[in-house]
Computed example of a mutant assay.
Amino acid sequence: MTLLLLAGTGLAQEIARRLDGRNIDVIVSLAGGTRTPDVAGGLPCRVGGFGGDAGFRAFLASQAITAVLDATHPFAARISARSARICAEAGIAYCLAQRPPWQARPGDRWHLIDREEEAAHHIAPGSTVFLATGRPTLDRFANLRSCHLICRQIEPPDREFPFENGRFLVGTPPFSVAQEQDLFAALGVDWLVVKNAGGRASATKLTAARELGLRVAMINRPALPDAPVVHDAEAALDWVAGQ
């Protein structure tokens, strides 16, 4: 078989490490969202988009791909929907690998929303808001102009903050609960806005928010494609072994 691993998450890195050295032809694909992609293992890797539906079909055919394991971000909904649809049309096995979503725990002060724009319905003017949502959707918070916005990203920004009432904060994960608590307290954070990506490593900010009594605007995940879904590396490897 020839497996295409659509990567870009910590789960994808774990899967790649465990596939490396096995008697399986694997190609790892990264969309190129970070300038210094880090994919564990010595597997062949390509970076960049496929050029739409036609480009993805052509790549699958040119590389004789027989199975696609999609371990992209849970909010990469368009990529997953396209990949599932085209694989179904081509008769190529497809599986979506996603960490389970976070669940609210006692003491959490979550407000569930479906889109970034809805955060303004809950956040009072004058609040200090920590955006742990990344650069791509930052423009969707334009209706929070009466608040002080702080957006954390891994790499130095390549553009100015889009609003006068905000700034970027560069930080390299992982962050401990204590580090997140100290940071939120020092910044005077009132609200945390986060996408429900799931995963243990990035959940420390939620624990810190709970212990500090901060409110959280939790963005719900988009709908899943109609396809098999696994939630950890072990189950993903079992799926691969069954192809």
Rank of each mutant, 00 (worst) to 15 (best):
A76N: 11
L69F: 02
G52P: 13
A88D: 15
L69K: 05
D53C: 12
A64M: 13
E89K: 03
S62W: 08
L69R: 02
S62C: 06
E89S: 02
L60C: 11
L60F: 13
S62F: 06
S62Q: 15
T72R: 09
A67H: 04
I79R: 11
R57A: 11
F56P: 06
G48V: 12
A76V: 02
A81T: 13
Q63L: 07
I65P: 10
S83E: 07
R85H: 13
A81I: 03
V68M: 01
F50Q: 05
A88M: 13
F56S: 13
I79C: 08
R82W: 01
A84Y: 06
A54M: 08
D70G: 02
G52A: 12
G55C: 11
A81P: 00
A61S: 10
F75R: 05
F75T: 03
P74F: 10
L60K: 07
T72C: 12
H73N: 05
G48C: 07
A84D: 06
A84Q: 06
T72M: 06
F59Q: 11
A61W: 01
I65G: 11
A81L: 09
D70L: 00
G55K: 13
G52Q: 09
H73A: 12
L60H: 04
A76Y: 10
I79Q: 14
A67R: 01
A54F: 04
R57N: 03
I65A: 09
A81R: 05
A88I: 14
F75W: 03
A67W: 00
G55I: 14
S80E: 01
A84K: 09
G51P: 14
L69Q: 03
G48W: 07
S62I: 10
F59T: 09
T72V: 03
D70W: 03
Q63E: 14
Q63H: 14
S83P: 10
A71S: 07
G52R: 06
L69W: 05
R78M: 07
E89I: 05
A88E: 14
S80H: 02
I79Y: 10
A71D: 06
D53H: 12
C87W: 09
R57P: 00
R78T: 07
F75I: 01
T72Y: 05
T72Q: 07
L69Y: 02
A81Q: 10
A61C: 03
F75A: 02
S62M: 13
A67V: 03
S80A: 09
I79L: 15
G55A: 09
